[in-house]
Amino acid sequence: MTAHAKLPNPPISDPVSDLPVVPYEKLEEIFEDIRKHPVYDHEIHGCLNCGICTATCPSAQYYDYSPREIVQLLWTENLEGIYDAMQEKIWACAQCYTCAARCPFENSPGGLVMIMREVAIKHELPSVKEVLRPFSRVLLKVVSTGNQLAPNMITKEAFPDWGPNVAKVDAPLMLLRKAIPMPTMHTLDTAWEVNLKTSVELYTIWEATGVLKQLESVDENLFDVVSDVMEEKRDEWEEWLEDNEDEDDD
């Protein structure tokens, strides 16, 4: 049993369900957002239904997921099927892009899945929060530091199935980090030491590209934490700039 199976059932067109049917206009709106995505036309051109994508798909081996089905639903504009797939199936994709490398029509089912994930987030579909919950640590890290993984995230509590020891030499984590011969990596909170200006520049990118808005819609608490960190770092940077204004002789 996978985590997918535990998700709530999508409330569409089920004759025995009490849940309200999703209005057709809503389904159209979702599809429009997919179709208008800047790279949609780049990722889909048609379909020969040859199945080479599903043949080579790692997720199709373990889940009720088929990239060919995703392409077929989108190409035939099967609005209910698209909505249904956006509940669970799109989250089964492992994003390896083998499908795209093989497709004789040069479609990218993996790329289409990414578009559908973006749109699922935009529409705050019920599955999204559930699916992204375990990912929040990564989200926090990447948005606030520009690093996606940090040494202090790899703990035996977080990864009990990785064995009892994070490293085969028993020593405090920071000591082991300092024994790495690259000075940029003597860190715990980030994978490498990140320049203060770099983080501040990154925040500008997040703001300008709507990423913070996305984050707010999937996890408000996380958004608040990130906002605090951002403010702190920006203040720090401003302070440094003020302190160093006089010295700057350029």
Partner: peptide, 22 residues
């Protein structure tokens, strides 16, 4: 050097947070 971020694509491919412009 320290003036670099990750590509942020692990997060994008994993979560759908982010977009082509970012």
């Amino acid at each position: 050097e320290t003036d670099q971020t990750s590509c942020t694509a692990w997060n994008y491919h994993g979560s759908g947070i982010g977009n082509v412009v970012s």
